[in-house]
Amino acid sequence: MPTNKEQVAEEVTYLDAISQALAAEMERDESVFLMGEDVGQFGGAFKISKGFMERFGARRVVDTPIAENGFTGMAAGAAICGLRPVVEFQFADFISQAFDPIINVMARHHYRTGVPVPVTLRCPFGGRLRAGPTHSQSIESYFAHVPGLKIVAPATVEDAAGLLISSIRDNNPVLFLESKYLYRRLKVPAPLSLEPTPLGVAKVAREGTDVTLVSYSVGVQQGLEAAEVLAREGISVEVIDCRTLVPLDIDTIVKSVKKTSRAVVLHEAARRLGYGAEIASEIGEACFWFLDAPVTRIAALNTPIPTSPPLEDAVLPQTEEVIETLRKVARS
């Protein structure tokens, strides 16, 4: 039952996958509904919910005022009353408006009362679209510090669907980080499987023996590109896709690093206290006697994201830097 013309096309994008998975969950479970700015009549800032209002009605596709704090609080209330809201933030950057209901209500309520808060917070995040300092941010680290939230960041079309389905079905508040950069760049042949992908299970995206690259979201795609280039030089890179940051599948990471003896952690968020610091620290504790090189991070500079294209490219990790770092860690 296609909802728009993209779905009958021969290819499915990362964006289509999110749209299809969301529609499928709304079909499957009447308690699932979507809310956010422009999600209804306009079909969403990135057209994820194009046609949803006609298909599911205005009661389940709710246009909200420009008031993240208010509608996020409303989602918390709806979840506590037994619904399964999916909240779309137009840009992840705006979620800081809604910090309080997420942290003090969603992440705490089950702990305090035993009542689950099954909310999915969809956050289009990350840079590379020349969108400037308030429409390009990576927000995972603010929330990774808060017990009570799950954080999911798919790197592939299949996972964008499978992990969203699991996020919606999960009884905890889940921050679902969608890569704006991958939205229309990543495609797979149709049709797409709409089976849930379990949360908390990392994936070995590419097997290798010389160095492990740990990443998530767009970094996994960069890592796969880098691994391809380095393979031609005889450097074998294992790429681990975390898929979920909380809970983190540290066992898969440790197993890989013990095998390769070297680890590089890559993300697009700023370096200082980025999630890579946590991953690197876990690796250091678990793998110390297996390490042949310091665990190395690749991340954005500790600056706001510039609007200027050359400056944005200079601030965010580029594939060339990933290649150079992996080469250096594997070879020196």
Binding site: L301, T303, P306, L311, A314, Q318, E320, E324
Partner: peptide
């Protein structure tokens, strides 16, 4: 060469950040 040229160019932006 062992680091991205872009990083060197971006050093200016880095230093310009007051809190850094």
């Amino acid at each position: 060469a062992d680091a991205a040229a872009a990083k060197a160019a971006a050093m200016a932006a880095e230093v310009a950040e007051p809190a850094t």
